[in-house]
Design a protein around this nucleic acid. Structure first.
Lengths: 203, 203
DNA sequence: ATGCTATGTTGACGCTGTCAAGATAGCATC
DNA sequence: GATGCTATCTTGACAGCGTCAACATAGCAT
């Protein structure tokens, strides 16, 4: 089984993804080169090309994993119909924890590396869009059902704006620009207040 | 003056920055290599190193220019003490226009290239922080003076959360992830509503 | 046993940022 | 005006990268 030098690796595809996740977490996208990856998997430089079309494809697969994890997180978060606040707060904190737990993964999922510079796989695009749709649905079904939206507010718009808030917080935090990690809890609560204020017209 | 091949360039420092801004706008950071830059300036590959410590330093200088422009934009935006809504809306649209007008510049200013992967210059850090402080001050002085903050809301927190919303919108938009450029105006207005809802307790 | 296909290998190309060493220009000083 | 210092610019080189082409092997179906 564990013969040190056999010609065929066995399951290089999975091994590459596994090793890539580690390398991503430790060094970020910048430190993730196919050559190093191959070396770590004990395989030659170009072997990965038999399992992924190119680096972009491998990164897309990696990001896709992340979206599945995020999907699971969203399923677990449950709002309460009568008062969405605690549920929303729990979700927001969970989201931030998700991003902080593996910043590089989050960056890969939402960063320009894939969406702007690279070419997002059709599969990745589908999963990512599905993830957002689930968020909109959840917000609409669980969060907003018991509340009255201010006049003319489209649930989709609320979802977009609130996700943007969440995403913006994560980016500012993870990129280490303005928000201290210590302030995070307070800012997060403030964000919840922001989102809730838009949802229920009066306290 | 304009002799085609003289040994010394004359003002390579400025020429590099100028050409870099063009290259950045057209091709993004990924397309901005020192070698190409040097070629465009009609100079050898390593000449830029006599004017910038390395690529990181040049990019920092480029980003710094952007923050100065953003500063100017913020000075021009004026809120009205009695009703901050139109002023805020104007500012938000101006901010989004700023980001959309030169996406790559915005990305450079706030992206991980400098703040996470690279080493932000001390000068850049100062300018960037000053820019945010100006935003907090402005929000506090112009925007919130006439309004009552909900109990216990720190102006700094409001500023952080609202900037995060703005920033998140820009990122999602520029990275081409979720929000269509067409939806932008509606989402932007929704964001203003979000921010205002947090500021004035009841309509 | 034969041959096809999936998988892995080495070699090479052009691109990148950056360092070291040498060339030149311009300016201050003697 | 000659001398020398320093800022500026040059070529050469190196390691790293993604990726293509050509070749080698292993394993499986026929």
């Amino acid at each position: 089984m564990t013969q040190p030098a056999r010609y065929h690796h066995g399951d290089l595809h999975a091994a590459l993804l596994r090793e890539a996740a580690v390398l991503l977490r430790e060094q970020g996208v910048e430190g993730l080169s196919l050559r190093r990856l191959a070396e770590r998997a004990g395989v030659s430089r170009t072997a990965p090309y038999h399992h992924f079309q190119d680096k972009n494809a491998l990164l897309c697969a990696l990001a896709e994993d992340g979206f599945h994890r995020l999907d699971r997180l969203m399923e677990e978060a449950a709002f309460q119909a009568d008062d969405p606040e605690p549920g929303l707060r729990r979700f927001v904190r969970g989201y931030l924890r998700f991003a902080c737990d593996d910043p590089e993964q989050y960056e890969l999922m939402f960063g320009r590396t894939l969406w702007k510079t690279g070419r997002p796989t059709e599969s990745l695009t589908r999963v990512a869009h599905g993830c957002f749709r689930r968020y909109v649905d959840k917000l609409e079904a669980d969060g907003l059902r018991a509340t009255t939206l201010p006049g003319g507010a489209d649930p989709l718009r609320v979802a977009q704006a609130s996700w943007a808030t969440l995403h913006g917080l994560c980016r500012l935090l993870l990129d280490g620009i303005y928000v201290d990690r210590q302030d995070m809890e307070a800012v997060s609560d403030q964000a919840v207040a922001l989102m809730l204020a838009a949802v229920r017209p009066a306290p």
